[in-house]
Every structure is written in structure tokens, then in C-alpha cells.
Computed example of a mutant assay.
Amino acid sequence: MAVADNFRRLLGTAFIALALGSGAASAQGGKPPAEVTPAAEEPAAKPSNAPYMKPLSRLATVLGSLHFLRGLCGDANADVWREKMNAILEAQAPGEADRRTLVAHFNQGYRSFESTYRKCTPAATVAVERYAKEGADLSREISARYGS
């Protein structure tokens, strides 16, 4: 399959993930982290300089943040964010270095809020809404710039 076709599928997957909404449910903490796992260890390779990697890395961070925050706030579908990140990795099929970069950004987004929030608060709910909007904006930007 052509790189452009893979990239279009990636963007469609990301956009669908972010279109799921930004509402948060009642507080429900104590869930164990569910991280995207990197592929098997290989010799370190340099990440590509592909221009879409910067916004795609930010999108990975946003998805990781949403995965944690929506789970914290009791969203029964919180795991969808990790699943969508895995779908992006599968559709994009990045080289090992780029894959590690994207996984690291997802995990960083998750951990940044995990270290701050212990329960769902009004601020966490606002963060969910803002990150969902940012993720949707990033998806549109990536699609517009690199999808054709």
C-alpha cells in the first residue's frame, strides 16, 4: 500500500478518535496505567525528519493525556484512546525510531497528568475538553498539510 494511503488511514483513525467527544463522567480513580508498548529492542536508529512527525508526536501526547484523564473521570470508553494510538501506529507503520518517538510521546502525555491528578476535578474536566479540541485541530492540520 502506498505511503499516502497509509497516511490517509492514519488521519482518518486519529480524527475518528478525537471526534468521540470530550465529556467526562463521574470520578473513578485508581485504574492502573495502560500504556502503548514499544516494539522489541533493536539498535538505536535516528527518528526521521519527516515534517509530519512534529504534529503527529503532539497528537500522540494528546491521546495519552486523554487516555489518562478520561479514565480518571470514569469514562467507560477511556481505553479507546490507547486503541486509537495503536491503530495510528499500525496504519502509519513508522520506522522503529519514529515508532519509539510516538510511543514515548503517548506515554509522556499519560504520565504528565498521572503525576498531577489523583481524582477527577473540574480542572481535569476542562483539560479533557481542551485536549480533545487540540487533538481534533491537529488531526485536521495534519490531514490538510500532509494527507494529499
Rank of each mutant, 00 (worst) to 15 (best):
A2M: 13
A2L: 07
A4L: 09
N6I: 08
F7P: 08
R8S: 12
R9T: 10
L11S: 15
L11I: 15
T13F: 09
A14P: 00
F15A: 14
A17Q: 05
A19I: 00
L20N: 12
L20A: 14
L20P: 07
S22M: 01
S22T: 10
A24M: 03
A24W: 05
A25R: 10
A25Q: 12
S26Y: 11
A27P: 15
A27E: 12
G29K: 08
K31T: 14
V36E: 14
P38R: 02
A39R: 13
A40E: 09
E42W: 10
E42I: 15
E42Q: 15
K46G: 06
K46I: 13
S48I: 00
P51R: 09
Y52P: 11
M53V: 06
K54H: 06
K54F: 04
K54A: 05
P55W: 00
L56G: 05
S57Q: 03
S57Y: 04
S57A: 04
V62R: 07
G64T: 06
G64Y: 00
G64Q: 05
S65H: 11
S65F: 08
L66R: 11
H67T: 07
H67Q: 03
F68Q: 05
L69A: 07
R70M: 11
C73M: 04
C73S: 03
G74V: 01
D75A: 01
N77L: 07
A78R: 09
D79E: 14
W81K: 08
W81L: 06
R82V: 00
R82Q: 07
E83V: 14
E83C: 08
K84V: 09
A87L: 08
I88S: 11
E90C: 08
E90Q: 15
A91R: 01
Q92M: 13
A93C: 09
P94L: 03
P94N: 04
G95D: 02
G95H: 07
A97P: 06
F106P: 00
F106N: 04
G109E: 03
G109K: 06
S112N: 02
F113H: 05
F113T: 04
E114G: 03
T116A: 01
Y117T: 06
R118F: 13
R118N: 14
K119S: 10
K119D: 01
T121F: 07
A123R: 07
T125C: 08
R130E: 13
R130W: 05
R130P: 07
R130M: 02
A132V: 00
K133Y: 08
K133V: 08
E134Q: 09
G135R: 03
L138S: 06
L138W: 06
E141R: 13
E141Y: 13
I142H: 01
A144V: 09
A144P: 12
A144W: 07
A144M: 03
R145I: 01
Y146E: 01
Y146A: 00
S148M: 10
